[in-house]
Write a protein that binds this DNA or RNA. Structure first.
Length: 421
RNA sequence: GGAGAGGUGGGUGAGUGGCUUAAACCAACGGUUUGCUAAACCGUCGUACGGGGUCAACCUGUACCGAGAGUUCAAAUCUCUCCCUCUCCGCCA
């Protein structure tokens, strides 16, 4: 949610931002409702002020034993007026709030404007594809042959998109989780194990509700949502809280499974590990001072890139264009690894600055040093990293002509084996 | 699932109809003292949304004591509904 004052004072900037994102523009409705709201507010507050004065007088009269009946009778109309204006005001505020929730976060000036993949800017590349003299296989062939993942039995147990990891496959997965968490801890992120289901208030805070409910699995009997990412529970940890300035930045890392309905996906996108309904991810979350959030975004990006470097995986970093950004983000990078078996880039991390957009929804503030008023923090998050595509890339990148897989050195102490197969 | 207790400011926690913009303490902030740190002492210290303004470090209005509705001239305080938390019992990894 944006600041209503900001919209009021800079409607054109907001319109421009909405347009860049290609979202629906409800600035006019917001401005109209906001004006109406303030008009009613002034009226009713004036009446209430009058009521308070009279009430005080009544108290005095009664204490001195005098009759207050006439004054009380006069208040009858005031009382009714207040009630009717208050009712109208509530209606206006509800409508206004509804429109406010539809206005997306506006993009940072450094974000390229566009709607197509070619409008994304490549800002960093690292590594090279492995030099091999055989035709590389896609990971779904390798994992089946090596008996690392059983997709078919996953279908039987739950459905498509719910793989069963087995033996060295399961161990590789666990090794990556531990590796990511340890690396995060070394960078000052406190490890968190959050709830895997959240209530509606939390899902609204990070922006999944009200309009992205279809992305999530819902436990309707209990009004709970399976988390689509650890971002949801971890960012909501501090909902309705106030930090001191010296507490910032607060940095968390959390491993969780993630659950996504992914309705409408098809084709090569869903082949193998490319897109799943349940997958594992380690998420990095920061709450920071607004003045440094873009520096923190860069360091978050470096923290995520570092993981790929240590695994020896080729990657590129894209600064996502306005059209490819989500509703809540003001700037976003994607990290993609090169899948040698599929000859395509796979997104393994998404790193975003939300500025105060989520914090305002969640009411997360800090009290500045000195006697300043509370301000909203800026929130950021980034995957560090999403497992399935990293697993896919590792298996393809480090495959041998015999169809085995060499485990990256950084993982040896976690797997306990150096070769798969 | 059954029974009971409770939800107050950054935190702990008083307050059972008008004098509560909410005692007290802690934290925070400013100052005094000090070689430095600490301690002690003095002072300041709610938030949100409006209005006015030499637009700021100023003045002013309203609301807010879990949420909503009601009673009343007046509600943290009385009534009702809902939500949540805790304790005990039952069940259980």
């Amino acid at each position: 949610m944006l600041d209503i004052k900001f919209i009021r004072e800079h409607p054109d900037l907001v319109r421009e931002g909405i347009q860049k994102k290609g979202a629906a523009d409800s600035v006019d409705e917001v401005l109209r409702l906001d004006a109406h709201r303030r008009e009613l507010l002034q009226k009713v507050e004036h009446l209430k002020s009058h009521r308070n004065m009279v009430s005080e007088e009544v108290g005095k009269l009664k204490r001195t034993g005098k009759d207050a009946a006439t004054v009380i009778a006069e208040m009858e109309t005031v009382k009714n007026q207040i009630k009717s204006i208050d009712d109208e005001l509530r209606g206006v505020e509800e409508t206004l709030h509804g429109f406010m929730l539809t206005i997306p976060n506006i993009p940072h000036p450094s974000v390229p404007v566009g709607t197509k993949p070619e409008h994304n800017q490549e800002v960093a590349t690292w590594g090279e594809p492995p030099v091999i003299d055989f035709k590389p296989k896609p990971h779904w062939e390798l994992v089946e042959k090596l008996d690392l993942i059983d997709f078919e039995r996953g279908v039987k147990v739950a459905g498509a998109g719910f793989p069963v990891y087995k033996g060295q496959g399961a161990k590789l997965q666990r090794a990556l989780i531990n590796f990511f968490l340890d690396e995060g801890a070394a960078k000052g992120y406190q490890e968190i194990q959050p709830p895997l289901m959240v209530n509606a208030a939390s899902a609204t805070g990070t922006g999944q509700l009200p309009d992205k409910e279809d992305l999530m699995y819902v436990a309707t009997k209990d009004d709970l949502y399976l988390i689509p990412t650890a971002e949801v529970p971890v960012t909501n940890i501090h909902r309705d809280e106030m930090f001191t300035e010296q507490q910032l930045p607060v940095k968390y890392c959390a491993y969780t499974p993630c659950f996504r309905r992914e309705a409408g996906s098809y084709g090569k996108d869903v082949r193998g590990l490319n897109r799943l309904h349940q997958f594992d991810k380690v998420e990095l979350v920061k709450y920071v001072h607004p003045g440094v959030s873009y520096n923190e975004l860069e360091s978050l990006r470096e923290d995520a890139e570092q993981l790929l470097k240590k695994l020896g995986l080729q990657y590129r970093t894209l600064l996502m264009c306005t059209g490819d950004m989500g509703f809540t983000q003001s700037k976003k990078y994607d990290l993609e690894t090169w899948s040698i078996g599929q000859q395509r880039w796979l997104e393994v991390s998404s790193i975003s600055n939300f500025e105060a957009f989520q914090a305002r929804r969640m009411n997360i503030r800090f009290r500045p040093r000195g006697d300043g008023k509370p301000e909203f923090v800026h929130t950021l998050n980034g995957s560090g990293l999403a497992l399935p595509r990293v697993v896919a890339t590792i298996i393809e990148h480090y495959q041998t002509p015999e169809g085995k897989v060499i485990v990256p050195k950084a993982l040896h102490k976690y797997t306990g084996f150096e070769i798969i197969g």
